[in-house]
Design a protein around this nucleic acid. Structure first.
Lengths: 139, 139
DNA sequence: CTTGCATCTGTAGTAGCTACAGATCGTATA
DNA sequence: TATACGATCTGTAGCTACTACAGATGCAAG
């Protein structure tokens, strides 16, 4: 039960608590190499530093914003360059925004279609269920 | 090169062409048992009937409407009953609609956040990239 | 020194397909 | 009838982004 940031660094559990990223997920990020291999204690436990903590925050925030791991990998590569190009980051974000908009649009279509189906159905008082009829359509 | 509906039934390729469902996906649906095991030719090729074709249309349409396989399984169980209850179908659809709405809402939030980030970035003319700054936030 | 939580590795599972490889089927044509 | 060639077969592995174990250790407090 220690939240102490000791001099040796953060243990994986602390990293998890601070960022909200699951421990298993942190190890997964290491395996797919978007997080670096951290130092180890003599016993073999991971010891993270502040850099790595920031990186994990970056990843979590990016995931929250819907970036895929592949996109995050690209973002991190950009950021890892000393003199990274803001316009590359900008462009990647614009592309991502476009895909989010597309998803919204297609979900809105679903929403409309489902609403219509539901509206046509008065729950069993009709001989044929209009929802089921719609689902059987060979459109 | 035949589109002939022969008396024996539809081959898997015909099913695929008619419904737009990938051949491998049709076999997958059989494996997870939302499509029945069809008859076979002497040689072992699948032979589907009209019932099964309709069922596949139903599945595809439901997928298009965003229903999960689990939900589709439930829908099919309802529909498979001779005297199925329209209100069960109704309720499942309402629940699904709610989840679609939630997804729309959360994607809209993303959209807004991403738009704001992009608006703040004038592509490299700022010392620190506002997008990257946002991503590093430890919120 | 023991207790007991934290962490370790490695593997397998999730959804919903998709993509092979290597073998056989089925049929149109020579 | 023989053959060629596309369609289909089975079985397995891959994809995304994790999550969930099992069984073995590490580590720190009492």
């Amino acid at each position: 039960m220690k939240n102490i940031t000791n001099t040796r660094g953060y243990m994986i559990g602390e990293m998890s608590r601070k960022t909200g990223v699951n421990i298993e997920t942190i190890r997964y990020y290491e395996r797919i190499a978007i997080m670096p291999k951290p130092d180890r204690t003599e016993g073999g436990n991971r010891q993270y530093n502040v850099e790595q903590l920031k990186r994990l925050f970056f990843i979590r925030r990016s995931r929250e914003l819907g970036f895929s791991i592949a996109e995050i990998r690209a973002l991190l590569e950009m950021v890892d360059q000393n003199d990274f190009s803001c316009s590359e980051v900008h462009d990647l974000t614009v592309v991502h925004l476009a895909s989010v908009k597309e998803k919204v649009a297609s979900l809105k279509k679903l929403e409309k279609a489902l609403s219509t189906m539901i509206a046509q159905c008065n729950r069993g008082d009709v001989p044929n269920c209009p929802i089921v009829d719609t689902l059987f359509e060979m459109a």
